[in-house]
Design a protein around this nucleic acid. Structure first.
Lengths: 105, 105
DNA sequence: TATAAGCGCAACCATTCGGTTTATCAAAAT
DNA sequence: ATTTTGATAAACCGAATGGTTGCGCTTATA
């Protein structure tokens, strides 16, 4: 079952988890403390995040620390690029318009 | 039913639609020509995109042109900000390290 | 005016999602 | 050696998702 980062970040809980562990690597139990759901549910979310490599496991004895794979987040940024081009272009056009108006005065 | 942009872009078809109409406003039928599914299915996708305001309708007679709401895409960019901070920071740290090594030479 | 075209809604269906509870297994602690 | 703790897997369940077909409305065209 190939996972997709966009599907992964679609869930608000998973986005919150990412924000959490972006600050500091955490175990599933520690993460679960922040949410109103079972540890098992969190585990399932971690599995999805791991499968699409947004997160990496760091095994220490019987504990598993999850840490964010920040490079993977860049893929979303990369996808946004095509749209960023557009909004920067529009901004530039507006800027140009303002300049023209100013000149005319 | 309140829609969420992250849920909206989770679907690959919807991402493809956004990329399409980013270039040029299009009618549902025209969009449907690009996909292997019915016009009605596309219509449902457009409804979702409209509900979360990623897309805007422009009614012209019996045709409906859909155009992208580029500003809404910035919300994704805004969400990424917290992670961008991290990866830029790491890059900076690496940069610093390289400078230090260079100085030592 | 009759007909065709463009669009969206409703009902339906199979599959996926996001949670639960229960069970299992390995590592730590007593 | 036994018990506790941390983590995952499996089975289950209701709700949401993403598609279909069929219908009806409005606008354009013959």
């Amino acid at each position: 079952m190939r996972r997709d980062i966009f599907q992964a970040i679609a869930d608000p809980t998973r986005r919150a988890i990412l924000a959490l562990i972006a600050l500091q690597a955490m175990t599933p139990s520690a993460i679960a403390d922040h949410f109103d759901m079972t540890r098992q549910a969190i585990s399932k979310h971690m599995r999805i995040l791991t499968e699409c490599e947004l997160v990496k496991q760091d095994f220490q004895g019987r504990e598993t620390y999850y840490q964010i794979e920040i490079d993977k987040m860049k893929e979303i940024d990369k996808w946004l690029e095509q749209f960023r081009k557009i909004w920067e272009n529009r901004f530039q056009q507006l800027d140009q318009l303002l300049l023209t108006i100013q000149k005319e005065k």
